[in-house]
Simulated assay, not measured.
Amino acid sequence: MSRTPQQIFQSYIYAGTMTRNPDALAENFTEDGVYEAPLVPAGATFPRRLEGREQIRSGMAAYYEQLPKDGRSPNFEKSGFVLHTTADPDVFIVEIDTAFDADEETNEADTVVSLVQIFRIRDDKIAQLRDYFAPDLVS
């Protein structure tokens, strides 16, 4: 039984954004899957391109290790997304607004980060993910 785009997306978000589990995240991709963040400049902390499940696993593990342990986490109750299916059953697009609560220690206000992700699916796994977000968020 094949998974719906909604199920694939939710599995990806749970593994990455919610739990920061590089093993679970990598398992959402095909063996030769590609993760791309085309707007991220070369040399940024966040990987610009990862090819293959093992590179996705190791690249995201390295990124997660660099994140501050006490950094702000997304507020999933305030966040939202709209998933768009396309004429191609193997492609879907997700518009995401991720909300972060105010940080009283630094006087930062609530923040909403908007991004777009394009998923290409093969055999119920992500064959290619293009993640478009403001690169200054991760550099």
Rank of each mutant, 00 (worst) to 15 (best):
M18P: 10
R20Q: 07
R20Y: 14
P22C: 10
D23S: 13
D23P: 02
D23R: 08
D23C: 12
A24P: 10
L25Y: 03
L25K: 01
E27C: 02
E27H: 11
E27V: 14
F29M: 03
T30H: 05
T30R: 03
E31Q: 13
V34E: 04
Y35W: 11
A37I: 01
A37N: 03
A37F: 02
V40R: 00
P41V: 02
A42V: 04
F46E: 06
F46H: 06
P47C: 05
R49C: 02
R49L: 07
R49W: 00
L50S: 01
L50C: 04
R53H: 03
S58H: 03
G59Q: 04
A61G: 09
A62M: 10
Y63S: 06
Y63I: 04
Y63T: 09
G71K: 13
R72N: 13
R72F: 14
P74E: 05
N75L: 09
F76K: 07
S79D: 08
G80M: 09
T85W: 05
D90T: 10
V91Q: 05
V91S: 03
I93N: 00
V94Q: 02
D97I: 13
D97V: 07
D97P: 01
A99L: 05
D101H: 10
A102H: 14
D103P: 06
E105C: 12
N107L: 15
E108A: 13
A109I: 09
D110Q: 15
D110H: 14
V112Q: 08
L115R: 14
Q117N: 11
F119R: 00
F119Q: 00
R120Q: 09
D124E: 15
